[in-house]
Computed example of a mutant assay.
Amino acid sequence: MKDLTALVLGGTGDVGEGIVRSFLKHGATVIVPSRSQVKGDALRDYVGDIETGTLKTVDGLFDTPAEAEALRDRIAALSSRIDLIVAALGGWSQGFAITDLGFDQWERILRNNLTTHFLAMKTFVPLLASGSGTYVHINGQSAEGPHPGAGPVAAMSAAQRSLTLTLAEELRPSGLKVHELLMPPINTRRRISHHHDRPEWPSAEDIGDYVATLIDRNDDVVTHWIEPKKI
């Protein structure tokens, strides 16, 4: 990944920050959109010990098409070439059966865990280097089966997977690659601080290392199931 430019969507989040650390260690230039300068500054502090790579943060939202397009233009002004996009977006929500979930809660989960991914694909994929760029979608294994108490989030994961697989087929003639990573639970800093981590789970930085390996070997496989102890 040395000398590549990567755009990490969700790079200030629990999983995204580890991916950013990994990419910097591999010598990449990493662009991270942030909803606020505070989040961008916190990320800079977190990776401040890394002496390789270059981190560029840019403030901006992409909750709506107009916001996404404005952010796209700011990113394009930072770099004329994007080699890799990683989407580590959305969040987990549980505690309600489907029949007990409020409509407002459903709408929020739909917006945060699916609409955001649609806007990311539609708006930022055109920034990828022609014929050689790669889009990586970070997903959970919740996309694969029932999850009582977390049904809406699992449904969004399944829908994200469908979108990503379709994107892979639609982009295939262009030479652009797409990878769908299905993750087990990840030992994020937040999870570790709450003592909810497990030794067999990968860290967020491990996920970044895995993506770097895919890029370095020019992998053609679309779907990757990441099992505990397999990274």
Rank of each mutant, 00 (worst) to 15 (best):
V47T: 12
I207G: 10
E17V: 06
G27M: 00
T213W: 13
G13Y: 03
S157A: 12
P148M: 10
S132L: 03
L101M: 15
D73K: 13
I109W: 10
G10M: 06
D49V: 06
T115H: 13
D59N: 13
R108Q: 14
A158G: 15
G133L: 12
G151W: 00
Q37C: 00
S162D: 08
P199K: 05
W92G: 12
M183D: 06
S174Q: 09
L181K: 04
A204G: 12
T29F: 02
I19T: 10
E144F: 01
M121E: 10
R191P: 00
M183P: 00
K56A: 07
T116W: 00
D219S: 14
I50P: 02
W225H: 11
L128R: 00
S130D: 11
T166E: 00
A168H: 11
G149F: 07
H26V: 02
A212E: 01
T64E: 12
A66R: 13
A76T: 13
G13E: 04
A158S: 15
G95H: 08
S132T: 15
A204D: 11
V178M: 09
R21C: 05
S79V: 02
G102I: 03
V222P: 08
I98G: 04
H194P: 00
L7A: 06
F118E: 03
S174W: 03
I226A: 03
E170N: 01
E227T: 08
R189M: 00
K25Q: 15
L167S: 11
A155R: 12
L119R: 04
T54E: 08
D45A: 09
H196Q: 15
G140S: 15
A87R: 07
E17L: 09
A97W: 00
A28H: 01
A212Y: 05
A66W: 04
G90Q: 12
G175Q: 04
N112D: 15
I226F: 02
L4S: 11
L43D: 07
A159Y: 09
K122W: 03
L165R: 13
V38I: 08
E169M: 10
L61E: 11
T116G: 07
T64G: 09
L181N: 03
K39H: 10
H224R: 09
G53L: 05
G48Y: 01
S157Y: 03
F103Y: 13
N113F: 09
I82L: 01
P65N: 03
A77Q: 12
P184Y: 11
G140L: 04
E180L: 15
D220H: 06
R35Q: 10
E170Q: 08
D219I: 02
V178H: 08
R172Q: 13
A120R: 03
G53E: 04
V32N: 01
A77E: 13
G133Y: 13
R81Y: 02
E144M: 15
F103E: 13
S80D: 14
R191E: 02
D49R: 02
I75R: 12
S162G: 13
L167D: 10
L171G: 11
Q37W: 05
D45F: 05
D209M: 06
H26P: 05
L171S: 11
H195I: 03
S203G: 14
V15I: 15
D104Q: 14
E67F: 03
V58F: 08
R35W: 06
E107M: 14
A159D: 09
D3L: 01
Q37I: 06
G102F: 04
A88T: 07
G11W: 10
L119Y: 01
G48K: 04
M183I: 08
L61T: 11
M1T: 09
I215D: 02
S132F: 01
L128V: 05
